[in-house]
Nucleic acid binder design. Structure first.
Lengths: 345, 345
DNA sequence: CGTTAATTTGACTTCGAATGCGAGAAAGGG
DNA sequence: CCCTTTCTCGCATTCGAAGTCAAATTAACG
């Protein structure tokens, strides 16, 4: 008896209505129920009406897990993204999620604390049988090999590999940095500081290298680099490091992202009492929300997040449909935003 | 027959490696393979070694979908959150994701553009057979009924219903607002402006009402309210609206979130040339990252996101294990942050 | 060494929906 | 009115792992 009540309780908790229940209630077969929920299946109106009524009455929802198992499609895509990116650039995740769900695909979220603990994560991704994966993190060549071997379609977001045929959506970091450098040098800045992102960030490397290269090309000799970690605090700290290293405040500071640029501006203004842009120019990268706030009005390169996420989502979905499509890289130019945080003439 | 293995590998590109493949390759039964991947199962070390070797060689990963089907556990939890929340307060999602994955549960993300399109979304959530759901959005009584009827454990994040027994984790919005009002009134402020959030936001309503109530209690008569939408721009616009409505700048502005408070400060300083806090005090709510930036140094109530997400996750997981637990509400006090954006004495 | 107890193992069934195939029903043609 | 064609529908099987239970193996002990 106690068994019975326990059973009942269990049953009440797991009150899952299956297609068999609906079938019984409607007096038809399970197959019929299944067909009624499949668009474009061969079902008479009478049948459909009956089944739908029964489904309604029982509160039936098809079990996506069971469907996935037999159909081989989970209608889930993994998004692998670092915590820092999500914190400092939440637009990416928001847009990805929005666009995916418009296409009937849900986002299974994988955030990583450090770009290094990807290995276990990939196993997880594969276990969950996602249809595809959007990766906004750095993967090693072996890791990419492993994914390709499983035949899981994937698209990199803002990471590319020059020497590899992979799917990627990128903002042209180098082009953006070169533009920033050009404008700053043209405006007469000569002593440069650079605040980079963390060493293990591919995006930061590209940006920093892009800026350094262009500075070299233009014959700028006085350049110091401080390493940051994309945070506001590290931007502020970076400016102090640069000052210590150069023996004075540089003319301009190029930051690997907007948040550090903001930290740098605040440190200049409120810690060092230096006027931005009169005495110091600061530029960033990304074009995040706060960059537009009037306290900063940042000169930066805005990534076309809308276009980029749209591209990433359509690329991944195309490859879910047709896994044999050729790899493709789509590089978007950033939007040059001439804000008031840098003297540009 | 060595060719066979090559064939298998080729085949593995499109077809997955199943426990049967591993079993065959190791010369054991499928049950044995399954047991080897279940911690604490009765398996000899010899067997385990053999199976693991075979699994390794074939690159086998257990299929979480199939496992879910039989075990009734998907190890996924839905997080339902509005786009605005994600954009302006990304910490919540980051922390939730982190804590869940530490517990071996993945986040299936459901972002909503407007709090209104929840209905289809709930169907989706149910279809995906998530084990539980964390809801940072407003649900109607009927919607809650529907979920309860399915027996899906859920926890509200920052929404509570006084007249309903549900699981919820909240920051005490009212307490926080009352503290802010107390401090401001004590410091001699008499003319108040309030910039609320959107009408359909429960959190905003609580905050605004909390502030209004305390102001009334303290006999403050001059109070104007402008409606915002949580955005920076609406904070800036709100200040102008308040000025128009009151015929002058108020002594203090209470904003329903930090981002609007920041917009308000910037509008005061850069549009109206008003000094904050000398001529105008501004306070917010949330304690987001930018509130700490030295340009703003916001007086605000910081939500204990770490504690709150931890509570939400442990509550949901407890209820997945034991669905019959009593509903529970956990209300956390916010941390009062006395920043430089308000004159407090 | 025999007998019992403890541990391992494999055959079979289960979860819930989708689908190929054939039977039966409706529709169409002569 | 009969025969063919086209629809519909149901039966039975499938997806991949996990759990049940009984058989088989091993360990333990007198």
């Amino acid at each position: 008896m106690t068994d019975n009540s326990a059973n009942n309780r269990n049953h009440a908790n797991r009150q899952r209505v299956t297609s068999y229940d609906v079938a019984r209630h409607a007096g038809v077969s399970q197959s019929a129920v299944s067909r009624c929920f499949k668009p474009g299946a061969s079902v008479s109106k009478k049948m459909r009406a009956r089944v739908m009524k029964a489904a309604e009455e029982l509160g039936y929802q098809p079990n996506a897990i069971a469907r996935s198992l037999i159909s081989g499609r989970s209608n889930m895509a993994a998004v692998v993204i670092s915590q820092k990116t999500t914190l400092y650039y939440p637009e990416i995740l928001v847009e990805l999620s929005q666009r995916m769900s418009e296409q009937g695909v849900r986002v299974l979220l994988f955030t990583l604390e450090h770009e290094s603990d990807i290995d276990d994560l990939l196993d997880q991704v594969l276990q969950y049988q996602v249809d595809g994966m959007i990766v906004a993190a750095r993967l090693s060549a072996q890791q990419i090999d492993a994914i390709e071997r499983r035949g899981l379609p994937f698209v990199f977001y803002n990471r590319s590999f020059r020497d590899r045929q992979i799917n990627a959506v990128c903002c042209d970091q180098t082009e953006g940095e070169r533009w920033l450098v050009n404008r700053l040098v043209n405006a007469g800045h000569r002593r440069f500081g650079i605040i980079s992102g963390p060493e293990d960030s591919a995006v930061s490397m590209e940006r920093t290298q892009g800026a350094l290269e262009r500075l070299r090309e233009l014959g700028v000799k006085q350049v110091a680099v401080a390493e940051g970690d994309y945070s506001y605090e590290s931007g502020a700290a970076g400016l102090l490091t640069l000052r210590a290293e150069m023996g004075r405040i540089p003319d301009a500071v190029i930051c690997a992202n907007d948040v550090m640029a903001i930290g740098c501006i605040d440190a200049a203004r409120h810690q060092l009492g230096i006027s931005v842009p009169a005495e110091l120019s600061v530029v960033g990268f990304d074009g995040v929300g706060p960059a537009r706030w009037s306290s900063y009005d940042l000169t930066t390169v805005r990534q076309p997040v809308g276009r980029m996420t749209e591209a990433a989502v359509s690329m991944i979905l195309e490859r879910v449909e047709n896994p044999d499509l050729q790899p493709e890289k789509r590089i978007f130019s950033g939007l040059m935003v001439e804000g008031g945080s840098a003297r540009l003439d």
